[in-house]
Design a protein around this nucleic acid. Structure first.
Lengths: 219, 219
DNA sequence: CATACGACATACACAGCGTATGTTTCCGAC
DNA sequence: GTCGGAAACATACGCTGTGTATGTCGTATG
Protein backbone atom coordinates (compact mmCIF):
# COMPACT_ATOMS: atom_id res chain seq x y z
CA UNK A 1 0.00 0.00 0.00
CA UNK A 2 2.67 2.46 -0.89
CA UNK A 3 2.28 5.67 -2.82
CA UNK A 4 -0.75 6.87 -0.88
CA UNK A 5 -0.21 10.25 -2.52
CA UNK A 6 -1.50 8.90 -5.78
CA UNK A 7 -4.78 8.02 -4.15
CA UNK A 8 -5.48 11.58 -3.08
CA UNK A 9 -4.86 12.91 -6.61
CA UNK A 10 -1.52 14.48 -5.83
CA UNK A 11 1.27 13.03 -7.94
CA UNK A 12 4.66 12.32 -6.52
CA UNK A 13 7.68 13.57 -8.39
CA UNK A 14 8.40 10.09 -9.67
CA UNK A 15 4.93 9.69 -11.06
CA UNK A 16 5.11 13.07 -12.71
CA UNK A 17 8.37 12.21 -14.41
CA UNK A 18 7.03 8.87 -15.49
CA UNK A 19 3.91 10.32 -17.00
CA UNK A 20 5.96 12.94 -18.77
CA UNK A 21 8.18 10.38 -20.49
CA UNK A 22 5.14 8.28 -21.32
CA UNK A 23 3.46 11.24 -22.96
CA UNK A 24 6.67 12.12 -24.78
CA UNK A 25 6.93 8.56 -26.06
CA UNK A 26 3.37 8.73 -27.31
CA UNK A 27 4.03 11.97 -29.13
CA UNK A 28 7.24 10.73 -30.69
CA UNK A 29 5.64 7.46 -31.70
CA UNK A 30 2.70 9.29 -33.26
CA UNK A 31 5.03 11.29 -35.45
CA UNK A 32 7.15 8.30 -36.44
CA UNK A 33 4.18 6.04 -37.13
CA UNK A 34 2.43 8.71 -39.17
CA UNK A 35 5.52 9.46 -41.20
CA UNK A 36 7.16 6.08 -41.71
CA UNK A 37 4.31 3.69 -40.99
CA UNK A 38 4.10 0.98 -38.38
CA UNK A 39 6.54 -1.49 -39.86
CA UNK A 40 8.86 1.29 -40.92
CA UNK A 41 9.51 2.65 -37.46
CA UNK A 42 11.97 1.08 -35.08
CA UNK A 43 11.34 1.46 -31.38
CA UNK A 44 14.99 2.40 -31.11
CA UNK A 45 14.33 5.60 -33.03
CA UNK A 46 11.21 6.42 -31.07
CA UNK A 47 13.19 6.11 -27.88
CA UNK A 48 16.06 8.12 -29.30
CA UNK A 49 13.70 11.00 -30.04
CA UNK A 50 13.12 11.18 -26.30
CA UNK A 51 16.79 10.70 -25.45
CA UNK A 52 15.89 7.34 -23.97
CA UNK A 53 16.37 3.70 -24.86
CA UNK A 54 14.01 0.92 -25.86
CA UNK A 55 13.97 -0.09 -22.23
CA UNK A 56 11.76 2.89 -21.50
CA UNK A 57 9.36 1.90 -24.25
CA UNK A 58 9.06 -1.65 -23.03
CA UNK A 59 8.60 -0.42 -19.50
CA UNK A 60 5.58 1.69 -20.38
CA UNK A 61 4.11 -0.52 -23.11
CA UNK A 62 3.90 -4.26 -23.45
CA UNK A 63 5.13 -4.29 -27.04
CA UNK A 64 5.21 -2.35 -30.28
CA UNK A 65 1.56 -3.08 -30.99
CA UNK A 66 0.47 -1.85 -27.58
CA UNK A 67 2.33 1.39 -28.17
CA UNK A 68 0.56 1.86 -31.46
CA UNK A 69 -2.74 1.03 -29.83
CA UNK A 70 -2.23 3.83 -27.33
CA UNK A 71 -1.27 6.29 -30.07
CA UNK A 72 -4.28 5.23 -32.09
CA UNK A 73 -6.76 5.65 -29.27
CA UNK A 74 -5.33 9.03 -28.47
CA UNK A 75 -5.81 10.15 -32.06
CA UNK A 76 -9.35 8.81 -32.20
CA UNK A 77 -10.53 10.45 -29.02
CA UNK A 78 -9.02 13.74 -30.11
CA UNK A 79 -10.90 13.48 -33.41
CA UNK A 80 -14.15 12.57 -31.69
CA UNK A 81 -13.84 15.57 -29.41
CA UNK A 82 -13.33 17.93 -32.35
CA UNK A 83 -16.21 16.49 -34.35
CA UNK A 84 -18.61 16.50 -31.45
CA UNK A 85 -17.72 20.10 -30.73
CA UNK A 86 -18.37 21.03 -34.33
CA UNK A 87 -21.72 19.27 -34.32
CA UNK A 88 -22.77 20.71 -31.00
CA UNK A 89 -22.92 24.17 -32.55
CA UNK A 90 -26.04 23.12 -34.48
CA UNK A 91 -27.84 21.41 -31.64
CA UNK A 92 -31.24 22.21 -33.12
CA UNK A 93 -30.70 21.20 -36.75
CA UNK A 94 -29.89 17.55 -37.39
CA UNK A 95 -28.84 18.13 -40.97
CA UNK A 96 -26.67 21.09 -40.23
CA UNK A 97 -25.05 19.19 -37.39
CA UNK A 98 -24.34 16.25 -39.67
CA UNK A 99 -22.86 18.55 -42.28
CA UNK A 100 -20.64 20.30 -39.78
CA UNK A 101 -19.51 16.97 -38.35
CA UNK A 102 -18.71 15.72 -41.83
CA UNK A 103 -16.60 18.71 -42.68
CA UNK A 104 -14.77 18.67 -39.38
CA UNK A 105 -14.04 14.98 -39.85
CA UNK A 106 -12.58 15.61 -43.28
CA UNK A 107 -10.45 18.34 -41.76
CA UNK A 108 -9.15 15.86 -39.22
CA UNK A 109 -8.28 13.48 -42.03
CA UNK A 110 -6.27 16.19 -43.72
CA UNK A 111 -3.78 15.95 -40.90
CA UNK A 112 -1.50 12.99 -41.54
CA UNK A 113 -1.29 12.13 -37.86
CA UNK A 114 -4.93 11.16 -38.01
CA UNK A 115 -5.48 10.17 -41.62
CA UNK A 116 -2.47 7.96 -42.08
CA UNK A 117 -2.50 6.57 -38.58
CA UNK A 118 -6.13 5.57 -38.44
CA UNK A 119 -6.90 4.67 -42.02
CA UNK A 120 -3.67 3.24 -43.24
CA UNK A 121 -1.53 1.92 -40.45
CA UNK A 122 -4.11 0.95 -37.88
CA UNK A 123 -5.70 -1.93 -39.79
CA UNK A 124 -2.26 -3.38 -40.33
CA UNK A 125 -0.85 -2.78 -36.88
CA UNK A 126 -3.87 -3.89 -34.90
CA UNK A 127 -5.19 -6.38 -37.37
CA UNK A 128 -8.39 -5.83 -39.21
CA UNK A 129 -10.73 -7.34 -36.61
CA UNK A 130 -9.47 -5.24 -33.73
CA UNK A 131 -9.35 -2.16 -35.93
CA UNK A 132 -12.93 -2.68 -36.93
CA UNK A 133 -13.96 -3.20 -33.32
CA UNK A 134 -12.18 0.00 -32.43
CA UNK A 135 -13.86 1.98 -35.18
CA UNK A 136 -17.13 0.55 -33.99
CA UNK A 137 -16.54 2.53 -30.81
CA UNK A 138 -15.40 5.76 -32.43
CA UNK A 139 -16.16 6.96 -35.92
CA UNK A 140 -18.55 4.19 -36.81
CA UNK A 141 -20.80 4.61 -33.80
CA UNK A 142 -21.06 8.31 -34.43
CA UNK A 143 -21.91 7.78 -38.08
CA UNK A 144 -24.56 5.19 -37.40
CA UNK A 145 -26.14 7.52 -34.88
CA UNK A 146 -26.25 10.29 -37.45
CA UNK A 147 -27.61 7.97 -40.12
CA UNK A 148 -30.41 6.89 -37.83
CA UNK A 149 -31.22 10.50 -37.03
CA UNK A 150 -31.36 11.30 -40.74
CA UNK A 151 -33.61 8.33 -41.41
CA UNK A 152 -35.91 9.29 -38.58
CA UNK A 153 -36.07 12.81 -39.89
CA UNK A 154 -37.10 11.42 -43.27
CA UNK A 155 -34.05 12.89 -44.97
CA UNK A 156 -32.94 9.43 -46.00
CA UNK A 157 -34.91 6.33 -46.91
CA UNK A 158 -34.95 3.40 -44.53
CA UNK A 159 -32.23 1.05 -45.69
CA UNK A 160 -30.27 -1.45 -43.61
CA UNK A 161 -28.79 1.06 -41.22
CA UNK A 162 -25.73 -0.92 -40.24
CA UNK A 163 -24.62 -1.56 -43.80
CA UNK A 164 -25.46 1.98 -44.78
CA UNK A 165 -23.35 3.25 -41.90
CA UNK A 166 -20.52 0.98 -42.95
CA UNK A 167 -20.68 2.29 -46.48
CA UNK A 168 -20.62 5.88 -45.33
CA UNK A 169 -17.87 4.98 -42.93
CA UNK A 170 -15.76 3.55 -45.71
CA UNK A 171 -16.58 6.48 -47.93
CA UNK A 172 -15.39 8.92 -45.30
CA UNK A 173 -12.33 6.83 -44.70
CA UNK A 174 -11.44 6.86 -48.36
CA UNK A 175 -11.87 10.58 -48.48
CA UNK A 176 -9.73 10.75 -45.38
CA UNK A 177 -6.86 8.79 -46.85
CA UNK A 178 -7.08 10.65 -50.12
CA UNK A 179 -6.95 13.94 -48.30
CA UNK A 180 -4.16 12.78 -46.05
CA UNK A 181 -2.08 11.89 -49.10
CA UNK A 182 -2.99 14.89 -51.24
CA UNK A 183 -0.41 17.62 -51.61
CA UNK A 184 -1.17 20.80 -49.71
CA UNK A 185 -2.21 23.10 -52.58
CA UNK A 186 -4.82 20.63 -53.87
CA UNK A 187 -6.33 19.75 -50.53
CA UNK A 188 -9.00 22.43 -50.55
CA UNK A 189 -10.20 21.53 -54.03
CA UNK A 190 -10.25 17.79 -53.34
CA UNK A 191 -12.06 18.33 -50.07
CA UNK A 192 -14.71 20.42 -51.84
CA UNK A 193 -15.14 17.82 -54.55
CA UNK A 194 -15.61 15.16 -51.93
CA UNK A 195 -18.19 17.27 -50.16
CA UNK A 196 -20.04 17.54 -53.46
CA UNK A 197 -19.92 13.83 -54.17
CA UNK A 198 -20.76 12.85 -50.62
CA UNK A 199 -23.63 15.28 -50.65
CA UNK A 200 -24.96 13.66 -53.78
CA UNK A 201 -24.58 10.13 -52.51
CA UNK A 202 -26.07 10.80 -49.12
CA UNK A 203 -28.59 13.41 -50.14
CA UNK A 204 -29.54 11.01 -52.86
CA UNK A 205 -30.89 13.61 -55.19
CA UNK A 206 -29.48 15.01 -58.42
CA UNK A 207 -27.13 17.73 -57.28
CA UNK A 208 -26.38 20.72 -59.45
CA UNK A 209 -22.69 20.88 -60.29
CA UNK A 210 -22.51 24.46 -59.04
CA UNK A 211 -24.84 23.96 -56.10
CA UNK A 212 -23.45 20.97 -54.28
CA UNK A 213 -26.39 20.47 -51.97
CA UNK A 214 -28.73 17.59 -52.59
CA UNK A 215 -32.18 17.75 -51.06
CA UNK A 216 -30.70 16.89 -47.73
CA UNK A 217 -28.45 19.91 -47.92
CA UNK A 218 -25.74 18.01 -46.18
CA UNK A 219 -22.82 19.97 -47.47
CA UNK B 1 22.93 -16.80 -77.67
CA UNK B 2 21.92 -20.04 -76.10
CA UNK B 3 18.42 -21.35 -75.63
CA UNK B 4 17.26 -20.54 -79.14
CA UNK B 5 14.28 -22.78 -78.50
CA UNK B 6 12.77 -20.17 -76.26
CA UNK B 7 12.69 -17.73 -79.14
CA UNK B 8 10.53 -19.97 -81.29
CA UNK B 9 7.93 -20.43 -78.56
CA UNK B 10 8.87 -23.98 -77.65
CA UNK B 11 9.94 -24.33 -74.04
CA UNK B 12 12.89 -26.45 -73.05
CA UNK B 13 12.45 -28.84 -70.15
CA UNK B 14 14.44 -26.58 -67.84
CA UNK B 15 12.25 -23.63 -68.69
CA UNK B 16 9.13 -25.66 -68.09
CA UNK B 17 10.36 -26.76 -64.68
CA UNK B 18 11.35 -23.24 -63.82
CA UNK B 19 8.00 -21.80 -64.77
CA UNK B 20 6.28 -24.53 -62.81
CA UNK B 21 8.11 -23.70 -59.59
CA UNK B 22 7.57 -20.02 -60.19
CA UNK B 23 3.85 -20.59 -60.57
CA UNK B 24 3.84 -22.83 -57.51
CA UNK B 25 5.60 -20.14 -55.53
CA UNK B 26 3.03 -17.60 -56.64
CA UNK B 27 0.19 -19.86 -55.59
CA UNK B 28 1.72 -20.68 -52.23
CA UNK B 29 2.53 -17.04 -51.60
CA UNK B 30 -1.01 -16.03 -52.50
CA UNK B 31 -2.42 -18.40 -49.92
CA UNK B 32 0.05 -17.38 -47.23
CA UNK B 33 -0.33 -13.66 -47.86
CA UNK B 34 -4.11 -13.92 -47.89
CA UNK B 35 -4.22 -15.92 -44.69
CA UNK B 36 -1.46 -14.43 -42.56
CA UNK B 37 -0.90 -11.08 -44.19
CA UNK B 38 2.26 -9.69 -45.73
CA UNK B 39 4.26 -9.13 -42.57
CA UNK B 40 2.97 -12.35 -41.06
CA UNK B 41 4.36 -14.65 -43.72
CA UNK B 42 7.95 -15.75 -43.79
CA UNK B 43 9.49 -16.55 -47.15
CA UNK B 44 10.83 -19.66 -45.48
CA UNK B 45 7.31 -21.01 -45.11
CA UNK B 46 6.32 -20.09 -48.64
CA UNK B 47 9.33 -21.99 -49.93
CA UNK B 48 8.60 -24.92 -47.64
CA UNK B 49 5.12 -25.24 -49.09
CA UNK B 50 6.84 -25.97 -52.39
CA UNK B 51 9.45 -28.23 -50.83
CA UNK B 52 12.04 -25.65 -51.71
CA UNK B 53 14.19 -23.12 -49.88
CA UNK B 54 14.29 -19.35 -49.81
CA UNK B 55 16.96 -19.54 -52.45
CA UNK B 56 14.31 -20.45 -54.97
CA UNK B 57 12.24 -17.47 -53.99
CA UNK B 58 15.12 -15.06 -54.29
CA UNK B 59 16.05 -16.56 -57.61
CA UNK B 60 12.66 -15.85 -59.15
CA UNK B 61 11.86 -12.61 -57.32
CA UNK B 62 14.04 -9.72 -56.29
CA UNK B 63 12.65 -9.57 -52.76
CA UNK B 64 9.58 -10.14 -50.65
CA UNK B 65 7.85 -7.06 -52.01
CA UNK B 66 8.42 -8.13 -55.60
CA UNK B 67 6.88 -11.50 -54.82
CA UNK B 68 3.83 -9.80 -53.39
CA UNK B 69 3.66 -7.49 -56.37
CA UNK B 70 3.48 -10.47 -58.69
CA UNK B 71 0.80 -12.14 -56.59
CA UNK B 72 -1.14 -8.91 -56.50
CA UNK B 73 -1.03 -8.33 -60.23
CA UNK B 74 -2.10 -11.89 -60.85
CA UNK B 75 -5.11 -11.44 -58.58
CA UNK B 76 -6.05 -8.15 -60.20
CA UNK B 77 -5.90 -9.37 -63.77
CA UNK B 78 -7.93 -12.42 -62.85
CA UNK B 79 -10.57 -10.18 -61.29
CA UNK B 80 -10.59 -7.86 -64.27
CA UNK B 81 -11.11 -10.78 -66.61
CA UNK B 82 -14.08 -12.06 -64.63
CA UNK B 83 -15.71 -8.65 -64.36
CA UNK B 84 -15.25 -7.84 -68.01
CA UNK B 85 -16.74 -11.17 -68.94
CA UNK B 86 -19.74 -10.51 -66.73
CA UNK B 87 -20.22 -7.07 -68.23
CA UNK B 88 -19.80 -8.27 -71.80
CA UNK B 89 -23.02 -10.25 -71.52
CA UNK B 90 -24.98 -6.99 -71.55
CA UNK B 91 -23.16 -5.33 -74.38
CA UNK B 92 -26.21 -3.31 -75.38
CA UNK B 93 -27.35 -2.02 -71.99
CA UNK B 94 -24.92 0.23 -70.13
CA UNK B 95 -26.82 0.04 -66.88
CA UNK B 96 -27.25 -3.69 -66.92
CA UNK B 97 -23.58 -4.11 -67.73
CA UNK B 98 -22.61 -1.86 -64.83
CA UNK B 99 -24.87 -3.82 -62.51
CA UNK B 100 -23.48 -7.15 -63.61
CA UNK B 101 -19.94 -5.86 -63.26
CA UNK B 102 -20.71 -4.61 -59.78
CA UNK B 103 -22.08 -7.92 -58.63
CA UNK B 104 -19.27 -9.90 -60.13
CA UNK B 105 -16.77 -7.61 -58.45
CA UNK B 106 -18.42 -8.16 -55.09
CA UNK B 107 -18.26 -11.86 -55.74
CA UNK B 108 -14.54 -11.59 -56.35
CA UNK B 109 -14.17 -9.74 -53.07
CA UNK B 110 -15.92 -12.57 -51.27
CA UNK B 111 -12.90 -14.69 -51.95
CA UNK B 112 -10.20 -13.88 -49.40
CA UNK B 113 -7.44 -14.32 -51.91
CA UNK B 114 -8.70 -11.23 -53.66
CA UNK B 115 -10.38 -9.23 -50.92
CA UNK B 116 -7.68 -9.47 -48.31
CA UNK B 117 -4.80 -9.35 -50.73
CA UNK B 118 -5.87 -6.31 -52.69
CA UNK B 119 -7.69 -4.27 -50.13
CA UNK B 120 -5.84 -5.02 -46.94
CA UNK B 121 -2.33 -6.17 -47.59
CA UNK B 122 -1.51 -4.46 -50.83
CA UNK B 123 -1.49 -0.88 -49.55
CA UNK B 124 0.88 -1.96 -46.83
CA UNK B 125 3.13 -4.19 -48.85
CA UNK B 126 3.47 -1.94 -51.87
CA UNK B 127 3.05 1.33 -50.05
CA UNK B 128 0.05 3.49 -50.59
CA UNK B 129 1.35 5.43 -53.61
CA UNK B 130 2.24 2.37 -55.65
CA UNK B 131 -0.97 0.64 -54.60
CA UNK B 132 -2.99 3.61 -55.74
CA UNK B 133 -1.11 3.74 -59.02
CA UNK B 134 -1.82 0.07 -59.50
CA UNK B 135 -5.51 0.45 -58.81
CA UNK B 136 -5.51 3.30 -61.27
CA UNK B 137 -4.70 0.70 -63.88
CA UNK B 138 -7.17 -1.95 -62.77
CA UNK B 139 -10.35 -1.40 -60.81
CA UNK B 140 -10.22 2.36 -60.83
CA UNK B 141 -9.90 2.75 -64.57
CA UNK B 142 -12.81 0.42 -65.12
CA UNK B 143 -14.96 2.28 -62.63
CA UNK B 144 -14.21 5.70 -64.06
CA UNK B 145 -15.09 4.41 -67.51
CA UNK B 146 -18.42 3.13 -66.23
CA UNK B 147 -19.11 6.33 -64.36
CA UNK B 148 -18.52 8.35 -67.50
CA UNK B 149 -20.80 6.07 -69.47
CA UNK B 150 -23.51 6.51 -66.87
CA UNK B 151 -23.10 10.25 -66.89
CA UNK B 152 -23.24 10.36 -70.67
CA UNK B 153 -26.38 8.25 -70.59
CA UNK B 154 -27.92 10.74 -68.20
CA UNK B 155 -28.30 8.14 -65.49
CA UNK B 156 -26.10 10.15 -63.20
CA UNK B 157 -25.61 13.90 -62.83
CA UNK B 158 -22.37 15.45 -63.99
CA UNK B 159 -20.15 15.66 -60.95
CA UNK B 160 -16.35 15.70 -60.81
CA UNK B 161 -15.86 12.33 -62.45
CA UNK B 162 -12.47 11.56 -60.98
CA UNK B 163 -13.53 12.18 -57.40
CA UNK B 164 -16.81 10.40 -58.00
CA UNK B 165 -14.93 7.42 -59.34
CA UNK B 166 -12.62 7.47 -56.34
CA UNK B 167 -15.58 7.51 -53.99
CA UNK B 168 -17.21 4.60 -55.75
CA UNK B 169 -13.88 2.88 -55.81
CA UNK B 170 -13.49 3.23 -52.08
CA UNK B 171 -17.07 2.19 -51.54
CA UNK B 172 -16.53 -0.99 -53.49
CA UNK B 173 -13.30 -1.60 -51.68
CA UNK B 174 -14.99 -1.31 -48.34
CA UNK B 175 -17.68 -3.68 -49.41
CA UNK B 176 -14.93 -5.96 -50.64
CA UNK B 177 -13.07 -6.06 -47.34
CA UNK B 178 -16.25 -6.43 -45.39
CA UNK B 179 -17.28 -9.35 -47.56
CA UNK B 180 -13.86 -10.87 -47.41
CA UNK B 181 -13.98 -10.83 -43.63
CA UNK B 182 -17.59 -11.87 -43.22
CA UNK B 183 -18.27 -15.42 -42.11
CA UNK B 184 -19.58 -17.69 -44.82
CA UNK B 185 -23.25 -17.99 -43.77
CA UNK B 186 -23.72 -14.19 -43.64
CA UNK B 187 -21.99 -13.40 -46.89
CA UNK B 188 -25.07 -13.59 -49.06
CA UNK B 189 -27.08 -11.32 -46.81
CA UNK B 190 -24.30 -8.76 -46.46
CA UNK B 191 -23.70 -8.76 -50.17
CA UNK B 192 -27.38 -8.13 -50.84
CA UNK B 193 -27.46 -5.31 -48.32
CA UNK B 194 -24.48 -3.73 -49.99
CA UNK B 195 -26.14 -4.02 -53.37
CA UNK B 196 -29.13 -2.19 -51.93
CA UNK B 197 -27.06 0.58 -50.38
CA UNK B 198 -24.82 0.95 -53.42
CA UNK B 199 -27.85 1.04 -55.64
CA UNK B 200 -29.26 3.84 -53.57
CA UNK B 201 -26.06 5.84 -53.48
CA UNK B 202 -25.30 5.48 -57.15
CA UNK B 203 -28.80 5.43 -58.49
CA UNK B 204 -29.33 8.47 -56.35
CA UNK B 205 -33.01 7.96 -55.90
CA UNK B 206 -34.99 6.77 -52.93
CA UNK B 207 -34.86 3.02 -53.14
CA UNK B 208 -37.64 0.86 -51.80
CA UNK B 209 -36.39 -1.42 -49.03
CA UNK B 210 -37.86 -4.46 -50.76
CA UNK B 211 -37.07 -3.35 -54.28
CA UNK B 212 -33.43 -2.45 -54.19
CA UNK B 213 -33.35 -0.73 -57.56
CA UNK B 214 -33.14 3.01 -57.65
CA UNK B 215 -34.14 4.76 -60.88
CA UNK B 216 -30.87 3.72 -62.40
CA UNK B 217 -31.72 0.11 -61.77
CA UNK B 218 -28.11 -0.65 -61.07
CA UNK B 219 -28.65 -3.64 -58.89
C1' DC C 1 18.55 5.34 7.44
C1' DA C 2 17.64 0.95 5.69
C1' DT C 3 14.98 -1.30 2.47
C1' DA C 4 11.94 -2.06 -1.28
C1' DC C 5 10.05 -0.75 -5.43
C1' DG C 6 9.52 1.83 -9.55
C1' DA C 7 11.79 3.80 -13.71
C1' DC C 8 14.62 3.12 -16.59
C1' DA C 9 19.41 1.22 -19.12
C1' DT C 10 22.14 -2.73 -20.66
C1' DA C 11 22.82 -7.27 -22.46
C1' DC C 12 21.19 -11.22 -24.72
C1' DA C 13 18.46 -14.60 -27.52
C1' DC C 14 16.00 -15.19 -31.70
C1' DA C 15 13.47 -14.51 -36.00
C1' DG C 16 13.42 -13.01 -40.64
C1' DC C 17 15.30 -10.47 -44.71
C1' DG C 18 18.78 -9.88 -48.03
C1' DT C 19 23.24 -11.35 -50.16
C1' DA C 20 27.14 -13.93 -51.34
C1' DT C 21 28.71 -18.22 -52.50
C1' DG C 22 28.45 -22.98 -53.56
C1' DT C 23 26.46 -27.22 -56.14
C1' DT C 24 23.90 -29.69 -59.45
C1' DT C 25 21.61 -30.38 -63.69
C1' DC C 26 20.59 -29.48 -68.14
C1' DC C 27 21.53 -27.42 -72.69
C1' DG C 28 24.17 -26.53 -76.87
C1' DA C 29 28.50 -26.57 -79.54
C1' DC C 30 32.47 -28.87 -81.33
C1' DG D 1 29.90 -37.89 -76.47
C1' DT D 2 31.94 -34.73 -73.83
C1' DC D 3 32.81 -30.43 -72.35
C1' DG D 4 32.28 -25.66 -71.10
C1' DG D 5 28.77 -22.73 -69.33
C1' DA D 6 24.81 -21.05 -67.55
C1' DA D 7 20.45 -21.47 -65.40
C1' DA D 8 18.05 -23.22 -61.21
C1' DC D 9 18.32 -23.79 -57.28
C1' DA D 10 20.59 -24.80 -52.04
C1' DT D 11 23.66 -23.37 -48.26
C1' DA D 12 25.88 -20.08 -45.32
C1' DC D 13 26.42 -15.61 -43.51
C1' DG D 14 25.56 -10.75 -41.81
C1' DC D 15 22.38 -7.46 -40.38
C1' DT D 16 18.42 -5.32 -38.43
C1' DG D 17 14.77 -5.22 -35.19
C1' DT D 18 11.74 -7.34 -31.69
C1' DG D 19 11.10 -9.23 -27.20
C1' DT D 20 13.10 -10.62 -22.65
C1' DA D 21 16.04 -11.01 -18.78
C1' DT D 22 19.00 -8.75 -15.84
C1' DG D 23 21.27 -4.85 -13.77
C1' DT D 24 21.48 -0.07 -11.70
C1' DC D 25 20.07 4.18 -9.72
C1' DG D 26 17.06 7.18 -7.46
C1' DT D 27 13.17 7.87 -4.59
C1' DA D 28 9.40 7.00 -1.46
C1' DT D 29 8.26 4.65 2.99
C1' DG D 30 8.62 2.48 7.70
Amino acid sequence: MSYALGMSGVKSRREQYSEATRAALLAAAARRFAEHGFAGTALEDVAADIQATRGAVYHHFANKTALFRAVHEQAETAMLKRVEAAAAVHADDVLAAAGAALEEFLDCCCEPEYGRLVWQEAPLALGWPEWKASEEKYAFGMIEQTINALMDAGAMPALPAATMARAVFQLLGGAGIELAMTAEPDKIRVKDEYLQVLGYMLGAGPAEPDGPAGPAGLA
